[in-house]
């Protein structure tokens, strides 16, 4: 070691300056490389959009695509004066829903939280890409940290969530104009969490679910469902369980029974909309854009109308349309909502 030329040690001020410069460069690089989810797959931007909203919702929906593609908060407002928001993300797992609920309740105390029970079928972390779309958008908090811990697949590392640059570094060769255009700001892609699609792809020959060896939901799922229930109780919020009317992935009767049993045991409301499609007025020849997996705008509006009525008649929700500030805010949202619908319809023609 003695044969080494003594390294000229820079002055402390220079070192500090260079450290700041390095951190700034790394931060900027991270901003550039993080996926923007502004076009194409926009689901990755949904979770973060909630933070832009005033936190005064009557009802918050938490769950997967069966909520954010099937429920229209605009209809709930227009028809029932219910101010709602969907904290939805693609393949949102039950522990992710729980931690989103935990986080939401730090910001606001809605009258009710609606949880879609499809994710009860998953008792293990599933997919890194979906994890990212739910978790990256969350603000840093203990809830986010716990959600990451619960969600990571074997190939994931916590450090890559703390420093997403380590995860997205390979995007350096795939950068698009969006990565620079939306570097410091992002457009809102949803309508209070609702992902709008107006196109139609009728549901034909929907496959029956293949028989399963075991229909019992995993213990971990019940554990998180219990945690959700307790959390809502502690915060004086009503927990409502729903199963959206998506024809596929298949919802087994055995699963449905377990949810019925659970809701009866704890006095919760559980609505399986698959059994009330006629009452909702849903027609899977016209109300779905992907052959029954999700509803299109027409279907979502019908379901929202039906569920809005339930919220009013069975859960005592009242209209807030007399709140001028809120109404003004919704007027703006409805305008944007209608404009987007018109834009999409125009594209279809």
């Amino acid at each position: 070691m003695n044969d080494m030329t003594e390294q000229k040690k820079p002055k402390a001020a220079v070192i500090v300056l260079l450290i700041y410069l390095s951190i700034a460069l790394l931060w900027l690089l991270q901003k550039v490389l993080m996926p923007k989810y502004m076009h194409g797959i926009t689901e990755g931007s949904m979770i973060a959009e909630y933070y832009k909203e005033p936190k005064d919702h009557d009802v918050v929906f938490i769950g997967d695509c069966e909520l954010y593609e099937n429920i229209s908060p605009a209809v709930l407002w227009e028809k029932y004066g219910i101010n709602s928001y969907i904290r939805g993300s693609a393949q949102q797992l039950i522990w992710q829903s729980y931690y989103l609920m935990e986080e939401t309740l730090k910001y606001e105390k809605p009258k009710a939280i609606v949880f879609n029970v499809l994710s009860m079928q998953y008792d293990k972390p599933q997919n890194e890409a979906y994890n990212r779309m739910t978790l990256d958008g969350m603000k840093w908090s203990k809830s986010k940290f716990d959600s990451i811990k619960a969600s990571m697949t074997s190939e994931e590392h916590m450090v890559e969530y703390v420093f997403p640059l380590l995860r997205y570094h390979s995007r350096i060769t795939e950068l698009e104009p969006d990565d620079f255009e939306y570097l410091f700001h992002k457009d809102t892609t949803t309508f209070n969490g609702y992902y709008m699609r107006v196109d139609v792809k009728p549901a034909e020959n929907v496959p029956q679910g293949r028989p399963l060896g075991n229909y019992q939901f995993g213990d971990i799922c019940y554990e998180y469902l219990d945690k959700m229930r307790v959390l809502c109780e502690e915060n004086g919020v009503e927990l409502i369980l729903v199963k959206a009317p998506s024809l596929y992935p298949y919802w087994y009767d055995e699963w449905d029974q377990q949810m019925k049993d659970y809701s009866e045991e704890y006095g919760l409301s559980y609505y399986n909309f698959l059994k009330t499609t006629d009452e909702c007025g849903l027609d899977f020849a016209t109300d779905t854009y992907d052959a029954g997996l999700h509803l299109n705008l027409s279907g979502a509006e019908k379901l929202s109308d039906y569920f809005g009525n339930i919220l009013v008649t069975e859960h005592g929700f009242t209209s807030h349309k007399d709140d001028k500030e809120l109404a003004a805010r919704w007027d703006e949202k409805i305008k944007a909502y209608d404009a987007e619908a018109q834009r999409q319809y125009a594209l279809l023609e």
Binding site: L25, E155, E160, L166, H169, I172
Partner: peptide
């Protein structure tokens, strides 16, 4: 930065 950005590590 070259290692960080062009290194073959992480998911994928």
């Amino acid at each position: 930065l070259i290692i960080l950005l062009f290194g073959a590590y992480g998911i994928g």
